[in-house]
Design a protein around this nucleic acid. Structure first.
Lengths: 201, 201
DNA sequence: TCAAAACCTTATCTTTTGTTAACGTTTTAA
DNA sequence: TTAAAACGTTAACAAAAGATAAGGTTTTGA
């Protein structure tokens, strides 16, 4: 199978973090693997160290914790986004949540050990260091906003914001997952939807 | 004034991110400034780009938003921690919250422009890149836990966890600030305290 | 195709939180 | 030193959310 198209796509998408020279890209792409996940297949599970970072070519992933036997969804990732149990990937400590494909999903993977090989390869070490930094900084910006939303906004306001800014999500994700993401129960989200519908009608 | 002791202290504390060689440290420390903040003095305000990252030698800082004229506290930083409006510092976009000293506080500052100078100085660029990466990765791990706490835990559970793991905070921070940090109102925290007190009595 | 599972809504009841205000104590600053 | 401000608690009521269960629809998978 020829994956050239997908690798070029990846290189292009990664420009929002860092631009690889042709020489660097030749090295970098050697360390990538393609992997397909069926719906409901797991990318990461609790108790195991997360050894990979993935780039989503197509599909979607769901992050969730299990607490007293109940799944609580904390996050989603979609096409052209990265996916990883980042803390575990960074610290090599056992992961604490599940990451699962919620559609048929194809990832391009980078193994932690390959990351480390590149970090020790002078031809690409600096670029990898930049790459890792930009990714981390990008996610910090996202996290800053997300934490602020929990501090400043009510669940209803979070829902309305999400509907405005990420309405697409609702077309692909069951509402009871979205509810968890907003920090509330599915029943509560259903009520909020009913409430806010009347305002617009 | 001789700040050698404080600079050595900083170098030691930064080892949790990265170790500077003697040569690198000589360069790095040239770019640092000391600054004192009186109680209630601002490190960052909304609408202005945050141009510095600070290391707290002593004192404490409070992060808060103002919403409809009301202050909502989102975070604190203490001795030997970093302080910055990180997203603004990284993106050069106007900051959206206040960062204020809540005690007499002394910081060692790095200006963004000095960071950039070092990023372009071959003698230290790689180390700076590593430094920036490790800081970002460190905060990502913190944020991952903090977001999870909002998704998984009730306010009461967050309070009990905080009391267990960061009890020291309560000795220095007014409770109505802590309440915001937990995502609730001061009145609600007061009730939670009363409730949970009875369990232990 | 068809039974099972998943999903969303609704209802009921309980618990928790928000809001506002009052009160007493402590801290602050002139 | 002293008046003002800040702080924590409590009360009363309203609003919102959690828990549980039931019902109907849609999706899934054998």
């Amino acid at each position: 199978m020829d994956n050239t198209i997908h690798l070029n796509h990846l290189r292009c998408e990664l420009k929002k973090f860092v631009s690889f020279s042709d020489a660097e890209w030749e090295i970098f792409k050697q360390y990538l693997e393609f992997r397909h996940y069926d719906k409901k297949e797991f990318f990461a599970v609790p108790g195991k160290v997360c050894d990979h970072m993935g780039f989503i070519l197509h599909g979607a992933m769901r992050y969730f914790h299990v607490r007293e036997g109940v799944e609580i969804t904390g996050y989603f990732s979609f096409e052209n986004e990265l996916v990883s149990a980042y803390k575990s990937f960074l610290t090599r400590l056992p992961n604490t949540n599940y990451i699962q494909a919620i559609e048929k999903t194809t990832l391009i993977l980078i193994a932690k050990k390959n990351f480390e090989l590149m970090e020790n390869n002078p031809a690409i070490a600096f670029k990898i260091e930049q790459f890792g930094r930009r990714i981390a900084e990008y996610y910090i910006c996202c996290y800053e906003d997300r934490v602020a939303s929990f501090i400043i906004q009510s669940p209803e306001e979070r829902y309305l914001d999400m509907q405005k800014n990420a309405g697409e999500i609702f077309l692909r994700i069951p509402q009871h997952y979205v509810a968890n993401f907003l920090g509330i129960t599915p029943v509560s989200l259903s009520r909020i939807r009913k409430r806010t519908l009347k305002v617009h009608a």
